[in-house]
Design a protein around this nucleic acid. Structure first.
Lengths: 138, 138
DNA sequence: CAGCATCCGGATGGATACTG
DNA sequence: CAGTATCCATCCGGATGCTG
């Protein structure tokens, strides 16, 4: 009887690998900017500071939960800053930090590639799906 | 009684917005390259063609399900090509297409930004968490 | 206005077993 | 070797209701 079962060994390997992944900078940043709402917020704020309610209106379809949650992680990562004006009613403005600003070129590089090659991707997808359904038919 | 309840209106707005998002090229590509395994596969293949089993070994921790699934979507999007050699046993090689290759600079731009600024992010996170726990303590 | 707490359904992804 | 098929735990994210 081995000290560790195969399942346990696999679990250990995964834990180790997860730790490796967690330590990988590219992976972390990729995970961050790939979040469903992050990019939208970043792009929205690229034009200048916005209030919480403005963001909620501009980014149609976001729930407060996700908006707040996303803003918190961005703030935690130092990409966005939060400024509270203690008036009545309260006013909170969000804006990109210099760090957040410096990320935009990279985001825009991906965006540019996307806009340039999206048609090729769509063509490829159509061909692939065509092929797939044809295979099923016969 | 209104024709649509508030919930229905919201659902409709969301559906519309989701359609808008789905049509957004940047969003699609971002969603693609941000996938947990996509980047790893892309980077692994950047060095040259690899067999299915090689990928599975290099990318420790990936399940066959995810490896296969990810390779399929990449193939569908035309970023990766699949070549079957009908021998015994079968041999399947994957490699970047020219299109997939053209994406690498953009991926590397993000990667470069990540590696350059990860320490700032970590510092920011530490400060943020410090602040949070201090607030709880008092 | 700008959130936070809670509940909950559906999607995501891993483990396992089987196949050409 | 290179997958496919199935089951199932987890987690993400939306809806709702409440607060300073």
């Amino acid at each position: 009887m081995p000290t560790l079962t195969a399942a346990q060994q696999r679990a250990a390997a995964r834990a180790e690998y997860d730790a490796f992944l967690a330590a990988c900078p590219s992976r972390q940043v990729l995970a961050r900017i790939s979040d469903k709402w992050v990019t939208l917020i970043l792009v929205a704020l690229a034009g200048g500071p916005l209030r919480y309610s403005d963001l909620g209106r501009i980014i149609t379809g976001v729930s407060q939960k996700m908006l707040t949650q996303t803003l918190r992680t961005l703030e935690r990562d130092g990409l966005v800053s939060r400024a509270v004006t203690a008036s009545v009613p309260v006013r909170v403005d969000y804006q990109l930090t210099p760090l957040g600003d410096s990320l935009m070129p990279a985001v825009n590089a991906v965006k540019a590639w996307a806009e340039e090659h999206i048609s090729e991707i769509e063509t490829s997808r159509a061909a692939y799906d065509q092929q797939a359904s044809a295979t099923i038919d016969r």
